[in-house]
Every structure is written in C-alpha cells, then in structure tokens.
C-alpha cells in the first residue's frame, strides 16, 4: 500500500523460545481505523509494545510517516506522532486530571532546564498555554473530566479513567493513535459512549489514523473499516469485518467461541 502512513513488515519478536509475533505485516492508511483482534496471548499487546518502541523487534522493519522507526526510543516515536493508551489504565494517579493532560502536551512544549531557571516568565507562559489547551481537550472529550479537572486522577470512575487516557494521548496531536482494549471493564452504556467519543474525534480530524486492540465485537463491528486477526503471533486474516467474521479460520480461532 503506497499511501500507508504506517507499515510493519515481517515484524517478529521472540522471548527466548516463544515466538510472540511471527512475520506480521500491517499497513494503516491515513484516516483509517484498524482493529486488531485475536484470542488472549495472540500477540496484540506485544504488537503495540513493538510499535511504540517498548520492545525492539527481533526481526522486520517498522515504518511510519516516511521514516524507518525500527528500534527507536519510545519518546522519539511519540515525538514523531504515535500515541497510545494502555490496557490496564496507567494514569499519573497522584496528579490532577488536568495535569495528566498537561503532561500529555510534553512533546509540544520546549522549556529546558536553563530556560525554566533563568526565564521564569517564558516557562510560566508556556505552562499557562498548556493548561488552557488541556482544559479545551478535557471539555471536548466529555464525561465528567472537565468538572473534575482539579481532582486527583485516582478519584475517577473507570469509564472516565479511560477517557482521560485517550485525552492524554490526544494531547500530543498524534497522527496515529493506538488504543489497547479501550472498553475493558466497561458496561454497555459506557462502551456506546466511548464509540461516540471515537467517532467525534475522527470527525474533528479526518486524517487521523487509529489502531485499536479490542475484545468487544460491538465496538469492532460499529467502528473500524478493517480488521486484522492475530492468532499465536501470526496474522491469519486482514479484511473488512463482514468478510473476517465469515472466515472459517477466524471463527475457529476466535469468533467460534462467541458465535457458535
């Protein structure tokens, strides 16, 4: 695919004897939503950890926005435009909701230690800008986040914690957003609200690409344009949802458990 903003080629990762990912190819075009599904242990989270540089792949290349980012440091990859959320939400829980998003703006602020010490007005102006921008983001993401912006992140309800993670990831203005099981632990109403949130974000910025790892078939059915299925570290399908759900191999590996 030539217009792919992101492409992984033959990405392989081994932990000792275990092959967690086996020559996986994935392409994402700008503006596309890609869902990655598969049974537990299929390698979905490992894939995210490779993309974001937490693990270096044992083989294969990862390209993003015209550059080979294989083996880059996580913070450099974020700077380049890939943000993520975590399966078990990892907020900065002893900081305020607003501070979580302000920290999300880290890559868009520049004050270094000498400027912070010698030019306090510049540093303060930057932080004021960051706080205002973060407040805007919280307003748009919805939920109770805006009203609770001066509360500790640890005080939030589960659904709001997820929203806050997404808000924090969006603050960096990524070109590609990775959502790791955003509906884990959510009830149906929260899941619907989350689907709405993602649609709204997409409507704001049509060029923005998303890869979502998901267990909830309702979200997969209602959102993405394309689905990749992983099983035992291998890619076994890569097609629109309607095609994938009829694929017997996929049903056997995964859907067969839920749709007999």
């Amino acid at each position: 695919m030539s217009d792919a903003i992101f492409s992984a080629r033959e990405v392989t990762i081994r932990f000792g004897g275990l092959v967690a990912l086996d020559r996986v190819d994935i392409d994402v075009a700008a503006g596309e939503i890609l869902a990655v599904i598969g049974p537990n242990g299929a390698g979905k989270s490992t894939l995210f950890n490779v993309i974001t540089g937490i693990y270096a792949p044992s083989g294969g290349r990862v390209r993003f926005d015209g550059e080979d980012i294989t083996g880059w440091q996580t913070h450099d990859i974020v700077m380049r435009g890939i943000s993520r959320t975590f399966q078990a939400s990892r907020l900065f829980s002893d900081l305020s909701v607003l501070d979580n998003v302000v920290i999300g703006l880290h890559t868009r602020t520049t004050t270094n230690v000498f400027e912070a010490l010698c030019l306090p007005s510049r540093s303060r102006r930057e932080l004021t800008w960051a706080a205002a921008t973060a407040t805007e983001i919280l307003k748009r993401v919805g939920g109770d986040l805006y009203d609770r912006r001066y509360r500790r992140a640890s005080e939030l309800a589960q659904a709001d914690r997820r929203r806050l993670e997404i808000a924090r990831a969006l603050a960096a203005k990524p070109k590609l957003l990775l959502l790791d099981e955003p509906t884990a632990g959510m009830d149906d109403r929260d899941t619907d609200a989350l689907i709405e949130d993602i649609r709204r974000i997409k409507a704001d910025r049509p060029e923005f690409a998303i890869i979502v790892v998901e267990h909830d078939m309702r979200l997969v059915a209602s959102l993405p344009s394309r689905v990749v299925v992983l099983d035992y570290g291998r890619k076994i399908a890569d097609a629109p949802f309607d095609v994938v759900r009829r694929d017997p191999r996929v049903q056997e590996a995964y859907l067969g458990q839920t749709e007999p």
Binding site: Q73, L91, S93, L95, V102, I103, H106, S123, L127, A172
Partner: peptide, 28 residues
C-alpha cells in the same frame, strides 16, 4: 521554578508511572 515548569511535571510523571511517562514522550 523547576516544579512549576514542564520539567517538574515530567519528574512527577516519572514518579507516578515510568512506562506511561515514556509513552507521552518523556525522555526518562
């Protein structure tokens, strides 16, 4: 001055969760 700048915030992020700090682009 350090506490009320992005540097203090980055340190606080590090304290709370190092992996998350890396994932928002902080050079840990």
């Amino acid at each position: 001055r350090l506490h009320h700048s992005r540097i203090g915030l980055a340190w606080n992020a590090l304290r709370a969760d190092e992996v998350a700090a890396r994932s928002v682009g902080i050079n840990v």
